[in-house]
Nucleic acid binder design. Structure first.
Lengths: 338, 338
DNA sequence: ATGAAAGCGCTAACAA
DNA sequence: TTGTTAGCGCTTTCAT
């Protein structure tokens, strides 16, 4: 072996020279392979410590075709739900010795596509993505065959990806039934981005509940949250003679609460209210807001588990979908007396 | 050249063969080098497209010693402020052709240290970190000389890192003066993790304002947010005969609002309130909450700019600290009539 | 239990 | 303008 080169940083070759062993032996120590005698093991380890050796994961990954890296793409990191899911994924990744490359699609299909492309170029071993949905997402064709993807909230029909979601339809239906149980009959469903799987399912659940009681479905849906203006919301409520409102996601909830206030309406006093998505302060503001709580941590945790099982080759099944249960948190705004 | 190998995925060698040029020429096209004739350029590009070629950024980075990757470490992604900063950093990184590896220290010094170590092993070109602070942070000794680090919220005395922060002391002082201007004289400052630079500075600003008017400083500080229980908060307010309260960060604000409610006290009616950190719904809840708003996007943006300027070698100065201005948003809870 | 040589996919000299 | 030869730092045959 040569071992005469001297580059900037300390490499395994340096360690090997310092320990008086071959490059391969040093490599064995680094990878905790068994076939190393106690003596050499110690010599190499002390050489590593002395030199302050840092393995280069890029070089390691290049040859071994393992980057110890997973990619994650979310739609909007500013959404607390998304942020918490990322956090959970990151925890699991760390426990598995992996790092997470994070991308934010910002609801832009082109960004989503180019970020996925970028992640693949960086040799992520797998991908957890919260897709923009159906026809909006255009990243499918750049996923290499056999590449492991786990989708969040949105199943992809054309591909056999694992996915994690909640039981959107049933959860929404239950919440609406709760409202109906309090005697409200004109429940308006407030939703955005109707093409999303979550939106469609939740609206479907809403319709289920309304239909079952023979009530008219009153769906107010817009493409973007910013369309929920004071005037629009006021118009919707008046037109439908609404006495209850259920917002179908967090951004909607914020917009709804703000819009109600701007229209001089207070939850409960003027209109019953349920939020699909629990949030900080829901138990604190006046009135407290009843909410459908999604299991945030489990969501990220399960997604990561699904992915790492694939990476380990543990699971061979064709496609797995995990549907997590939600919890309805009755508070004041739905009409419950607490 | 050989070009006979056939591995799994398509490499530059495959492209070169397909286009009938040398490996280096293909590489030139990939890197948009100028010295390529229009004819070959097109041949290579069409070969890339035909083969569906994906550059391997790991291999690229290994040789060029450029990973096109930066690392980011935050304390708690669940904090909306942190999440938004990450988002902004990610945007800038994407615009520069970089990706972001995200880590969450979760307030654990050992995790912080090991995550930094991991990022360095993965050859990130630079690091943006929101450090745990002073004696808690132990990652300093693993930063290689010349490595570019930008710290958030917390200057590191022992190292010449660039940093971005807000004018904590002045902002806090201004907010407290506002409260004093409304006639409140017994203002309690509610803070956590007192060793943090942000906490210390904000408390210092609070004391400045109180001292200036000859009022007694009433600081209620605990190590961890979970210590802000109903009983503790009730005791503090009673003991200090508080008629106003300023909470020094977001988690504090949430805990304070919840704690006040549990003690049967309402902001404004029973006690004036200002939150250091604006939040969703601050303008919506009853009463609306006056807040010191931090420039979230700019924060992440400036940090990323600082880092990329270093990476480009644009800036040679010894050390730069950017102090961003805050905005006080007067709402109802401080006593303002709107 | 240990080592020599080859090569992962790419870029960087240095030719031609 | 194009190609050749070396590696980047590591893992992997295949020997010994």
């Amino acid at each position: 072996m040569d071992m005469t080169k001297s580059s900037g940083s300390i490499t395994l070759v340096d360690v090997a020279r310092e320990a008086g062993v071959s490059l391969k032996t040093a490599s064995r120590v680094l990878n905790r392979e068994v076939s190393v005698s106690g003596d050499t093991l110690e010599r190499v380890q002390s050489a590593m410590a002395r030199l302050g050796y840092r393995p280069n994961e890029l070089a390691r990954g290049l040859k071994a075709k393992k980057s110890a890296t997973i990619g994650m793409v979310v739609k909007n990191l500013a959404d607390p739900f998304a942020a918490n899911v990322v956090k959970a994924v990151q925890d699991v990744a760390r426990a598995n010795g992996y790092i997470v490359i994070l991308a934010n699609s910002g609801w832009d299909p082109e960004v989503e596509r180019s970020e996925v492309e970028s992640l693949i170029r960086h040799q992520v071993e797998g991908l957890i993505i919260s897709p923009l949905g159906g026809s909006k997402s255009t990243f499918l064709d750049i996923i290499p065959p056999g590449f492991h993807v786990v989708t969040l909230d949105q199943p992809i029909r054309k591909a056999a990806f694992d996915s994690v979601m909640i039981n959107n339809r049933q959860s929404a239906s239950d919440a609406v039934q709760h409202l109906l149980g309090h005697g409200y009959d004109r429940v308006v469903a407030l939703s955005t981005r109707p093409w999303l799987h979550t939106s469609m399912e939740r609206i479907a659940g809403y319709r289920d509940a309304m239909r079952e009681r023979g009530f008219e479905s009153l769906v107010a849906s817009v493409d973007h949250e910013s369309f929920i203006t004071k005037e629009w919301l006021g118009g919707v409520l008046k037109e439908h003679k609404a006495n209850a409102l259920i917002s179908m996601n967090w951004v909607c909830t914020i917009a709804a609460l703000r819009g109600l206030k701007q229209n001089g309406k207070r939850p409960l006093r003027d209109i019953a209210f349920i939020s699909f998505d629990d949030f900080e302060l829901a138990d604190t503001i006046q009135p407290t807001v009843s909410a459908v709580r999604q299991p945030t941590e489990e969501f990220g945790y399960e997604a990561a588990q699904l992915l790492f099982q694939r990476l380990r080759g543990t699971s061979q099944q064709r496609r797995r979908t995990i549907a997590l249960p939600t919890t309805f948190i009755p508070r004041e705004s739905c009409g419950c007396r607490l």
